[in-house]
Write a protein that binds this DNA or RNA. Structure first.
Lengths: 202, 202
DNA sequence: TCCCTTGGCTAATGACTGTTAGCCATGAGA
DNA sequence: TCTCATGGCTAACAGTCATTAGCCAAGGGA
């Protein structure tokens, strides 16, 4: 049984990154997003790169590690984009605009990572590090809004509710965005920046 | 082995609803929310109501049905709250305010249902009906915003982005709300109503 | 030409899980 | 007092799955 697949160690599927491990990580990301972590089997991931499930262990060390890498890489990228966006900007309104734009840009450009990152925290065996990073990220927005309130340029009852709202609406982008849609990433980022500034009272 | 639990068909755990099936559905909801659908076993659900996994089948017909009931009940309640909130209100601003308040109220009061409903659509074997209901719900918000634009009382570039934003920020409430927090459900609903009206340009 | 690393493969392991089958104590009603 | 529906239970079934073990072809380097 199962004679249709002889051993062909040399052949590499076309159209995939030369680095096998990178192709596996990408396939895992897509499958985790489409089916969920627990519903995705190692055999599924293997099939997506043209090999059997057990062969994956020649390149990566396990399913849980694949998920952890996605989640940590996600937070690192998000925090880096945020830091770069607000770097050197002191005006609080402009700072919030740029932070929101980076937030939305991330959730449009890294749709799958964000989607998996938001849904599969419970599937992580050691979520602490990821949770700490998320919490620090949220705190950054809240403190920014609090500063705007202190300076009198924002008028919002609760900085916490405003920061949650802004973050949640940006995260929602990862639920529906696709590249051939009505808006480009840049247009989307700009419009969400506007919406967020309105929300905090300009 | 396993002698610590003799047959005691008569004893009902205290503090649980008289109706065993209702207690099971509640336990399933809590566990699905805390651990995810696939990570929750029938044995877990049984343990939460003081019986073994297989005994559940004397009251409910299976795990998938438990999930489907939660998801459909969720959408029914949400749509009913929405309909009741906007019933008889013609002014478009007031109509949007009430719709948002109902939306937020639902996501605070039915935190777990909303949370499970949003995360486990992919675990439903037949998601079509739920997806249709969700899509109709979103359409209601978008059309409301479009009417406000046509009447000239809202000023927003894209009704779709605005409706997504408002829905997403309300849904986010189910991620963090708890009864002993800073705001009551009513306070929360009111404030989110405000934020939403600001977002569409009053 | 020969060796050995690389990266496939199949088989096996060990564990878990939804569901069904079949048994039996309890207690309500005749 | 007797019967039987109810609602527990354990055992068994029929899978599924992550991971490990061990085998082997290809091909690059000596």
């Amino acid at each position: 049984m199962k004679v249709e697949r002889p051993h062909r160690p040399g052949d590499v599927p076309v159209g995939l990154p030369a680095d096998r491990a990178a192709a596996i990580r990408l396939a895992a990301l897509r499958l985790f997003a489409a089916q969920g972590y627990r519903a995705t089997t190692m055999a599924d991931i293997g099939a997506a790169v043209g090999i059997r499930g057990p062969s994956l262990y020649k390149h990566v060390s396990g399913k849980q590690v694949l998920l952890a890498e996605i989640m940590l890489g996600t937070m690192d990228t998000l925090l880096a984009m945020h830091a770069e966006a607000v770097d050197g900007v002191t005006d609080v309104t402009e700072r919030l605009r740029r932070a929101v734009e980076a937030h939305v840009r991330y959730h449009a450009r890294h749709r799958l990572e964000a989607f998996v990152g938001n849904r599969e925290i419970g599937s992580l065996e050691e979520p602490d590090r990821v949770l700490r990073l998320r919490s620090a990220y949220e705190r950054g927005f809240r403190e920014l809004i609090e500063r705007g309130l202190a300076e009198g340029v924002f008028t919002v009852r609760s900085a916490r509710l405003a920061s949650y709202s802004i973050l949640d609406m940006g995260m929602g982008v990862s639920n529906w965005f696709h590249d051939s849609g009505e808006f480009s990433v840049d247009q989307l980022a700009y419009q969400y920046g506007d919406l967020a500034l309105r929300l905090v009272g300009r």
